[in-house]
Computed example of a mutant assay.
Amino acid sequence: MTQTGPTRRARLTDVPSVSPDHGENGHGFVWRFWIIVVLWAALVVVRSDALGIPVRDPEGQMFRGRLTKALVFLAVIALVEAVVRARSRRRARDGFVGGVARVLRERWTRQRLLLVITGLVGYHVVYLGYRNLKSWNALNPLRDDDLLAVDQALFLGHSPAVLLHTLLGQSYAAETLAVVYRSFTYVIVLGLVGSLALVPHVRRAYVFLSAATWAWILGTLSYYLLPSLGPYAEVPGEFASLQHTPITDTQAEYLVERAFFLADPSASDAFVSLGAFASLHVGFTTLVFLMARYYGLRRTSRVLAGYLAAVIVATVYFGWHYVVDDIAGVLLGLAAVQLGKWTVFPPAWSARSTPGREEAA
């Protein structure tokens, strides 16, 4: 019997192919993604015209600033990955710099670069629309009393936030959970950009991009379904004893922003950031966790499961969200991932040929 040497477990970034994944010919998944983006943008424009409030990007933070940061992260991750792969190849004839350049050329063909950059542009167009629609939702009547009643019913008349304050304390726990809550933005950006930079087949990378795009859309719909501010605004006394953290300042700032918008929605700098149902912190963290599993990253997904639990606790602890918001957030994340898969690999095609999965990293 012929013996074979031990095989190395495949890693997520091993395959250098940048072509669309096998199966469906062409770039149908790209067209489907952009149809979603265009329809969403059209909805935002129609709503803007109906309200007489223009689409805004305060100081370029929602589109230009976020897109620029995403592109910077993309360049850094791509370079680091190229350095690691070049060192592992150890081709003396190329030299270190030449080896890095070779890896970058292999991964970043003109086709992949175009698909990744335009995909990020479309994603941020949807995000800009989400932020504006979320802002305009301040004009609708609030439903915090209903959500608060559901929370109290779930906990037999008790406040889940107060229970957490009693269990965890109101000083060290506040500082720790503030770090967890504020880290959310970086986790989302790194997850999204990392998938676009590291997943070998660009089509499979688009599953994360499409799922994240759907998450903003579903989040907007949930905000309009049950407009709300969150427990910290509805029952502020429950959070008055918490140690002061950056979260405290942000919450106060958001309430001032909302009051300013309601006083004069036509003001050029009037913009609202508040929205409780559903929790997109929980929804997006759920999404990142599920995408780690989808890409076969077992160890990473275990870490993210713990991080998701910490984010859920933080949202309730600080009064950003009701427990029912977090439940809705988990369901939103599940739905967004499924819609993202269907956008890239439509059910009719998937029934004929299920794409292979990379092994765990």
Rank of each mutant, 00 (worst) to 15 (best):
Q243R: 12
T245A: 00
P246S: 02
P246T: 11
I247H: 04
I247Y: 03
T248V: 06
D249E: 14
Q251Y: 10
Q251P: 03
E253F: 14
Y254Q: 10
L255T: 11
L255W: 10
V256S: 14
E257N: 15
E257G: 15
R258W: 08
R258M: 10
A259R: 12
A259Y: 09
A259K: 09
A259L: 15
A259V: 05
A259E: 10
F261P: 04
L262M: 02
L262C: 00
A263T: 02
A263M: 04
D264G: 01
P265S: 00
S266G: 09
S266K: 05
S266M: 07
A267W: 04
S268T: 13
S268A: 15
A270I: 06
A270H: 03
F271T: 03
V272F: 02
V272W: 07
S273K: 12
S273H: 13
L274T: 14
L274E: 15
G275K: 05
G275P: 09
A276K: 08
F277M: 07
F277K: 07
A278F: 07
A278P: 09
A278V: 15
S279C: 02
S279R: 04
S279E: 03
L280W: 03
L280V: 09
L280K: 07
H281Y: 01
H281L: 00
H281G: 02
V282L: 06
V282E: 02
G283K: 01
G283D: 01
G283T: 04
F284P: 10
F284I: 14
T285S: 13
T285E: 13
T285P: 04
T286K: 02
T286V: 09
T286H: 10
T286F: 01
L287C: 14
L287P: 07
L287A: 11
V288P: 08
V288F: 13
V288E: 11
F289H: 14
F289V: 14
F289W: 15
F289P: 08
L290G: 09
L290M: 13
L290H: 04
R293E: 07
R293I: 10
Y295A: 03
Y295P: 04
G296F: 00
G296N: 04
G296H: 01
G296S: 06
G296R: 07
G296Q: 03
L297K: 12
L297P: 06
L297Q: 13
L297W: 13
L297G: 10
R299F: 13
R299M: 05
R299N: 06
S301V: 13
V303H: 12
L304D: 01
L304G: 03
A305E: 11
A305C: 11
A305Y: 08
G306W: 08
G306D: 06
Y307D: 00
Y307P: 00
Y307H: 02
Y307M: 04
L308S: 01
L308M: 07
A309V: 10
A309M: 04
